[in-house]
Design a protein around this nucleic acid. Structure first.
Lengths: 115, 115
DNA sequence: TTGCCATATCGTTCTACTACGATAAACGCA
DNA sequence: TGCGTTTATCGTAGTAGAACGATATGGCAA
């Protein structure tokens, strides 16, 4: 098969509809909420999240082009989001394709919603 | 009338059911989301928020008693939350009664929900 | 007034974050 | 193999955050 130039990061064959059974309160949940909020607590990272949600997946270079920041700075922000679990990066040849981790984003929404 | 020793911070006669009409996307919304998330991005501050949501209002001293931190440190965290608009502090005699700003908390939920 | 209580602010120290340019690493292609 | 492209990492500098003890402030009671 031909290699598509626009790679889609999340393989479509995984709906991942398993509900998250972890509690939304308690010390562990508080830590998790703080961690995720901290990761989202920067305008550039919010922009990246929105970009990935809107585009469903995005090549790193496209993200760099969208933000008024140096490439190394964007790479650092991507690392923060990746370390928090909110996004995932898949190597696609010489490029890296980033995408949202939908269950972690849902988890963030659930935790914030529990406040 | 007698002054009640347990002051309730939000005066009950204000339902504040006005819906927030500001957009949940765009540059301003991104900034706002980042700001609120940053304020919530620390375990101690999450604990404070939960405390205030659960108890509806709380004397500063009670918050200090609940957290394993020095009084001055808790005071700083309260200031961060207050500067972000998430909580409000009303002076009640020699004490200060803190409470959630419900519409700002709702705004945070709406912004996170828009991701 | 004097003193006590609750809270905020100050000053300090240490750590973490943010941003950048420079460089390294990984990959495809000629 | 060697080159250009893409992304990550390193090193650095400046700023901000987190924690504490000490101190100031402001109100109430004696």
């Amino acid at each position: 098969m031909a290699t598509p130039s626009t790679a889609l990061c999340p393989p479509p064959g995984r709906p991942q509809e398993k509900p998250d059974l972890r509690p939304v309160e308690g010390p562990a949940a508080d830590e998790e909420l703080a961690l995720l909020c901290k990761a989202a607590g920067h305008p550039a990272r919010v922009q990246i999240l929105r970009l990935l949600v809107r585009r469903d997946a995005c090549i790193c270079g496209d993200i760099v082009d969208e933000l008024p920041l140096a490439q190394s700075t964007v790479s650092q922000h991507l690392k923060v989001l990746k370390d928090a679990g909110l996004i995932r990066g898949e190597i696609d040849g010489p490029r890296v394709c980033y995408c949202i981790e939908p269950h972690v984003l849902r988890r963030l929404k659930a935790l914030v919603g529990s406040l």
